[in-house]
Design a protein around this nucleic acid. Sequence first.
DNA 1: CGGGTTGTGGTCATACTGTTCACGGCCAAC
DNA 2: GTTGGCCGTGAACAGTATGACCACAACCCG
Lengths: 239, 239
Amino acid sequence: MSQRFDPIRVLIIEDDPITAEAHAAYLQRVPGYVSAGIAHTGQDAIRILRNVHQGAAPAIDLILLDMNLPDATGIELCRAMRAAGIDTDVIAVTAVRDAAVVRTAVALGIVQYLIKPFGFSAFAAKLTAFREYRALVGSGAVTDQRAVDATFAALRPTAISDLPKGMNADTLDLVLVALRRAQPRAVSAVELAADVDIARVTARRYLEFLVQTSLAERSSRYGTPGRPESEYRLREPAA
Amino acid sequence: MSQRFDPIRVLIIEDDPITAEAHAAYLQRVPGYVSAGIAHTGQDAIRILRNVHQGAAPAIDLILLDMNLPDATGIELCRAMRAAGIDTDVIAVTAVRDAAVVRTAVALGIVQYLIKPFGFSAFAAKLTAFREYRALVGSGAVTDQRAVDATFAALRPTAISDLPKGMNADTLDLVLVALRRAQPRAVSAVELAADVDIARVTARRYLEFLVQTSLAERSSRYGTPGRPESEYRLREPAA
DNA sequence: CGGGTTGTGGTCATACTGTTCACGGCCAAC
DNA sequence: GTTGGCCGTGAACAGTATGACCACAACCCG
């Protein structure tokens, strides 16, 4: 039970040394966590975890796992861990934005999914939620459905990633959904405004924001009288 | 993408035949789900799943897994599945109330944990949450951290253990009644405040709380100048 | 080839709402 | 009777969509 007050030992699995160091630095700033090592390849990671599993090294409570490793994907590594009977909790830390990967990650028991690049607040939010979860699940008995629900609820993501001033999350969602619905075709600001029933200016502001964050791309549409129309298209999540 | 509207095919793994039948009956009552078979032992289950995995049988989208099987624990079965590359989502349905089991279940990617005995509403709540999750993760692209957070949030219950400080049960009741009276229509904080005769600020605080506990949902009302108005609607308790 | 036409890109002030904060009334405990 | 905390309120502040307005760039016609 003192487990709850001991620091949570974290293994960082990340091929890029600079990024790995950055994560370790972030980790130091979150109370209750300490780094338990860094692995730069899947092989490394497996070796370390196997040692730990056999009691040859101090336990590891959490893994920060990059999905792109030189010798394996994070999914493969995770599957191998589970097959070996290693049930360590995993937080995915990755630039991969593929829904299928997210789905598989969930099925393999990944408790949080953090998309790169991220700031310290997003990082801290995920780790804080995990600490809460750990306190609940480590506290001994599960009495009833409410207790289990509370445990699962601790893993619920809370922090809305901060948008720039002047933007509303709901509206952004609306625009994104409309863009996705139009999918292969590109839409102009006017068309989108009519579709979603917001003003043209507003539509344009959000579309321009999506271009800036490289989630959408802009091109010009010629052929009609008048100033050329800008059209926007959702950018495919890089394969 | 039609996948979202096809029924979700469920394999029930449960050794007691009567209980298994009861679960199947419950399943029929939840829209969007169909039973895809019943397995009474771990061996059975593995055999069925292997067939499916090799394409010899129609796909299975979800497993209701009992933790106590004659020839294996649910944990062992789940581990074996993951090792075999079967990433089907799993909901644990069990009388086991051990925190360690819950923790391991989470690590192995179990998406919901339902404690026996349970009534239909608890059952339906878990399956509805899963359907929502599936719609989100199956909708194609993951755009950003917010989208991933929404996906994870669909799987995590919002346990309301206590009323947060600053809230009064009576006032909450008042708001709920007013929302129910307005039923199909959505009301803004201003409208509700006038209706119940409380301050706008107070109304908004309670409405926001209801959204957080996913008892109500919020959308934005556009068309007029000024900041968009949030409107709130009672969420259907799983039809 | 150049000016007129046309329709959108971009900016601004405005209006209306969400959000915050300190105050004060009400109730319970001592 | 006094004290302290709880919770709703009003007002001030911040946020955000809108409509109006001007500038701009391509088509079109003389």
